[in-house]
Design a protein around this nucleic acid. Structure first.
Length: 280
DNA sequence: ATCCTATCCTGGCTGC
DNA sequence: TGCAGCCAGGATAGGA
């Protein structure tokens, strides 16, 4: 599923094609993509605006809009499970599951395609307000070992649901939480306030390393997620240590990878590398 | 404060 | 082979 590395990859891919383009029109094929905004209001806000900076915050893709050189709100896109965002050259026919389309002034088309319809593509006046609930960027300066240790200590939650909580740290999802926990040799049910300083530092380090390596591999591709309809997929799925590897052997110790359910999510662990907490 | 469940959706898988 | 039913999974809302 698109998590921070996949979203970052999408942003890097579409940024050059989108920056500086004027949005000529709006076509909404699935209204709920707008997250409650009326299509007419969306069109008024977006049509005729020019795209400024294209950036990422957590799993959100943001495009700043301008009119006559002045700030004019933001496009805000969340891919959720199966969303794909790409800029197509002129003359490419829409494929299936297209939910929203923005023709650009150079003839290209920004397309939001989403099989499962969970994704959102909407307009907000203020990105800072819309994104205010997100925790720090795990690859940002604010996410220091000391901040992380204090954050873990101030909650009393199992590690997995806490790391999935976008208000705690943003950008992690099911895959990269499982991978980071395995690399840090921590069981997903370990309580956040009971980690040693060393274990917290290890987890902090592995979260960053996992995300950085995944970005370097242009994210993970499988299921319905590809960068573009014709484009190359990312390759980080080939580096997975536990995710989706249930029944196969742990690449570091050889014990079988187990699949459990934690926080209502499929969860992949090596019980030899990741010792369960005593109190369950 | 934290956890659990339901909701939104569809393609792909399982089992008969 | 055909088909019904189940399931994944990010975010959010509401209840325990």
């Amino acid at each position: 599923m698109p998590e921070l590395p996949e979203v970052e990859t999408v942003v890097r891919l579409i940024r050059p094609d989108l920056t500086g383009r004027r949005i000529k029109g709006v076509r909404v094929e699935w209204e709920r993509t707008l997250g409650g905004m009326r299509p007419a209001a969306f069109q008024r806000a977006v049509q005729g605006a020019t795209v400024g900076r294209v950036w990422r915050r957590g799993k959100y893709i943001v495009a700043d809009l301008e009119r006559r050189g002045r700030p004019a709100g933001h496009l805000l896109c969340h891919l959720r499970m199966s969303g794909r965002l790409h800029v197509d050259p002129a003359g490419i026919a829409p494929g299936p599951h297209e939910r929203l389309r923005l023709p650009l002034d150079d003839g290209c088309v920004l397309r939001f395609v989403d099989v499962r319809k969970f994704g959102r593509f909407t307009y907000v006046e203020r990105a800072d307000v819309a994104l205010a609930g997100l925790g720090p960027e795990p690859l940002g300066e604010e996410f220091t070992p000391a901040w992380f240790r204090n954050g873990l200590r101030s909650r009393r939650r199992a590690l997995k649901p806490l790391l999935l909580d976008q208000a705690f740290v943003c950008g992690l999802g099911n895959i990269y939480v499982d991978e980071s926990l395995h690399r840090a040799r921590l069981h997903p049910l370990r309580r956040s306030d009971r980690l040693s300083v060393l274990a917290a530092a290890r987890l902090h380090n592995e979260i960053r390393a996992t995300l950085e390596e995944a970005i370097a591999h242009e994210g993970s591709s499988f299921d319905t997620f590809y960068r573009t309809p014709e484009g190359r997929p990312g390759s980080f799925q080939e580096q997975f240590q536990v995710y989706g590897r249930q029944g196969r052997s742990c690449l570091s110790c050889g014990a079988p990878i187990r699949r459990l359910v934690v926080a209502q999510r499929g969860t992949h662990v090596c019980l030899r590398c990741q010792r369960p907490p005593r109190s369950l």
